[in-house]
Design a protein around this nucleic acid. Sequence first.
RNA 1: GUCCCCUUCGUCUAGUGGUCUAGGACAUCGCCCUCUCACGGCGAAAACAGGGGUUCGAGUCCCCUAGGGGAUGCCA
Length: 468
Amino acid sequence: MTFVTRFAPSPTGYLHIGGARTAMFNWLFARHHGGRFRLRIEDTDRKRSTPEAIEAIIEGMRWLELDWDDEVVYQSNKSKRHAEIAHELLKRGAAYNCYATPEELEKMREEARAEGRHASYDGRWRDRNLAEAPPGISPAVRLKTPQEGETILNDLVQGEVRVANEELDDMVLLRSDGTPTYMLSVVVDDHDMEITHAIRGDDHLTNAVRQAQIYQALDWKLPEFAHIPLIHGPDGAKLSKRHGALGIGAYREMGYLPEAMRNYLLRLGWSHGDDEIISTQQAIEWFGLETVGKSPARFDFQKLENLNGIYIREADDHRLVDMVTAGLINATGRELNQIHLDRLKLAMPGLKERAKTIPELVENARFCVETRPLDLDTKAQKLIDDEARIRLALLRSCLDTIDDWIESTLDETLRAFAASEGIKLGKIAQPLRAALTGRTVSPGIFDVLLVLGREESLARISDIGSTL
RNA sequence: GUCCCCUUCGUCUAGUGGUCUAGGACAUCGCCCUCUCACGGCGAAAACAGGGGUUCGAGUCCCCUAGGGGAUGCCA
C-alpha cells in the first residue's frame, strides 16, 4: 500500500512558517515511503479566500522545493460531492435537519458555558418530527453523533486521545444555505483523495475527534492522524506578525536559503539523535513520525541565521554570484559590467565565509563594484592618518614593482614591507584594507588585492594618497 | 468556564528504569588561531516545573498541583 499525504492550507493569507513545516513533514513522510504528496487548497470560505493567497502558498512551496504529486485539488470544486454525502447521511437517518436560529444557538452557548459544559448545542431538532419545521426557514444539516461512550483516536504523534461523546454536540455538516462545512469537506476530500496519513497542526487535534465521528457515520476507514505541535513565537505565545508569522516569502527576502529554512524547520519538533546539519536527502532517508516531539517549539532567528551561514558557505559560487548581482543592482541602482562580475566570482569564496544572509553578502561584496574614488566609512577614515598615508604611498611603489600579481608574491611583498618599516603586518594591512574597500572589515587582504587586480588596487591606493 | 494536549540548559533538542556526576547544537562568556571580520579549535556557565507515589533504583512509569498551548463557530 502506498502512503498518500497532503498539505491542505486555506488560502486566507500567505504560507506561514507553521504551514511550511506542516507541508514539509507531509512531503518528507511521503518521499521517505515512496508515496505521494498532494496539495489541496481549502477555499470553501469564499469570502476570505483570495487568488493572491493561493499564489503565495504555491510560490512558497516552490521556493522551498516541496514538489507535490498530481494536480492541485480545490475544495470549492467539490462542494456538490460534499453535499451529496450529507444528503445520503440524512437519508440514512444518521443526520438531521436543524432549524435552530442563530439567536437560539447563541443562547445555548451562553448557558453551556455558565453551567460549565463543553458541548453547547442541545440537540433540540435531533428527534423532532419534520412536520414541526418552521416555515420559511431553511435548515442546517447536523450529524447525529453518539451520545454515550467515547471517541478514541490513536494519533501517531500525540498517542491515544479519548473524548467522552457527551462532550461533543451534533456538528453542522451542511449550512442552511446548503454549503458544506469544513468538518465535512475535509473528511470527504481526504477519503476521495485516498489520503492515508493526515499530518497537520496540533490545533486540529480536537477536530480530528469530531471528524472520526463522521468517518464512523459513513463507515469509512479513518486515515492515520499525526498532529504536530505548533510553532510559537520567542515569548512562547502564539506566533504573531511581530515574531515570525511572516509569510515564507518574507524569509526569502530576508536572505535565507531554502535549504537552510528546510533544515531549520526540520529540527523544530523533529530530531535524529544529535544531528543538526541534515541535508534534504538525508532527511528523506531518516524522516519518521516516531521522533516528532510532542511539545510546541519556539521560533529562534539566531539558530536559523546560524544554519543559513552554514548553507551559504556550502552553496555554489555561481548561484551566490547571481543572487548577489541582483542584490547589488538593486542596492546601487547601477548595472554591473563584466569586470564587476569577474570580481564577484573571484571574491565569492572569501565573501561567503563571512555572511549569514544574502543581504549581508551583498553588503560585503560592494567593494567589488564600487566606483573610484571610494567613500570610506567612518571607521575606515580613522585608519587613514598621516602616518598611514605615507606608508600607503611607500607601499604603492613597492606593489608597483610586482610583475606577477599572485597571492604568494603579494604576501611576500607585504610582509617584507612591514618588516622594513618595523611594524606588524596588521599595521599596514588595515589602512590598505580601508583604501581598497572603504571598510575595516573585508575578506583577507591578499584576496582583496587579487580580486581588484593590479590596476584597480594601485589606483585605489593612489586615491587615498592624493587626498593628502 | 469546560474539554483536549504539552512541560529536560535562555532557545532547539538527545534521553524509551540502572551506562545521567543528564549529552549535542544555537546564543552568551573566556582563551587560541589571525592582516580585519568571519570560520575553525579549546574551555566555561547553563536544565530534568513542583509535590506525592510505584520500584532495590525514576529525567524516564502513575497521580495531583502549577504553568503554557489548543479547542469550544451554520471559520478553515
